[in-house]
Design a protein around this nucleic acid. Structure first.
Length: 239
DNA sequence: AAGCCTGTCAACCGCCGAGAT
DNA sequence: AATCTCGGCGGTTGACAGGCT
């Protein structure tokens, strides 16, 4: 049985006041980010440690960039999401000044809908329109039909966005292709966004997903390790 | 003007993994 | 090996603002 992270009866909940923010900022400036569990008491705050940590990370960090996401940031989020899935902290790590919460919210409120409008399933970045599929799909044939698929249903702007989203390369590879060989010894996370070919059966999809998940986990852990060894503040996903 | 609906965002909650014992 | 503590993460919730009828 786990203990709660704090004694809930005595804690403040809800929005933070300016005074509370100031106390937290002052304390961290003096003592640094130490033990979050004991910080509230030491700083004279009634919020629980977790809440203090969250407030610090999401709002009080000096390097935070507020305001709208730029187009290149949007593009990067979409590509990283295609690669990493809902690993918001990893995605945010590639966007200086952005927090995982901010990225997650932006994804759920803007980008998800944008992809849906483009006819792309945001959960797996595959075309979601129910269209006739080739009986025996192969990469070449699915590439040929992709533009046509995008034309069905999507609005003109969305079509253009979808084409842009795909990039100039008309090749469509399966979702796992970005985890291919890492023979260089460096983390090889290809950020090229790819749209997978259709699968013929549910069993194939599930098998493929398992395969991708295992490999993704491996590369993410590797990236973490390398990042911690090099002392980088962001994970190096570029080649 | 009032009520309803929808979108956004800050914050909370529960779970998990890592490290310590 | 088992258990505990802590920090971190992702999913979810709720308050609020703005738009619409």
């Amino acid at each position: 049985m786990r203990k709660p992270c704090c004694e809930k009866l005595d804690t403040n909940k809800g929005a933070w006041s300016k005074q509370e923010d100031q106390k937290l900022v002052d304390y961290i400036r003096k003592h640094g980010e130490g033990c979050w569990r004991t910080l509230p008491q030491a700083a004279g705050l009634l919020s629980c440690g977790k809440s203090c940590r969250l407030r610090r990370i999401n709002h009080l960090r000096p390097d935070l960039k507020r305001g709208n996401f730029a187009e290149d940031e949007e593009d990067l989020i979409i590509r990283l999401h295609a690669l990493l899935g809902n690993r918001w902290s990893l995605i945010a790590g590639r966007l200086p000044g952005r927090t995982d919460n901010e990225v997650k919210n932006y994804w759920n409120s803007h980008l998800r809908r944008k992809l849906i409008n483009m006819g792309i399933d945001p959960s797996n970045h595959r075309l979601s329109r129910s269209l006739p599929r080739p009986q025996a799909p192969n990469i070449t044939s699915s590439c040929a039909t992709l533009s046509d698929e995008l034309k069905c249903g999507a609005h003109d702007d969305d079509q253009q966005a979808a084409v842009k989203y795909r990039g100039e390369n008309d090749q469509v590879s399966d979702a796992g292709s970005c985890f291919e060989d890492d023979s260089s010894g460096l983390v090889n996370l290809n950020l090229d966004l790819t749209i997978s070919i259709p699968f013929t059966s549910l069993a194939n999809v599930e098998e493929e997903q398992k395969h991708i998940n295992v490999r993704a986990k491996y590369y993410v852990n590797k990236a973490r390790l390398q990042s911690s060894l090099s002392g980088a503040s962001t994970y190096s996903l570029d080649n």
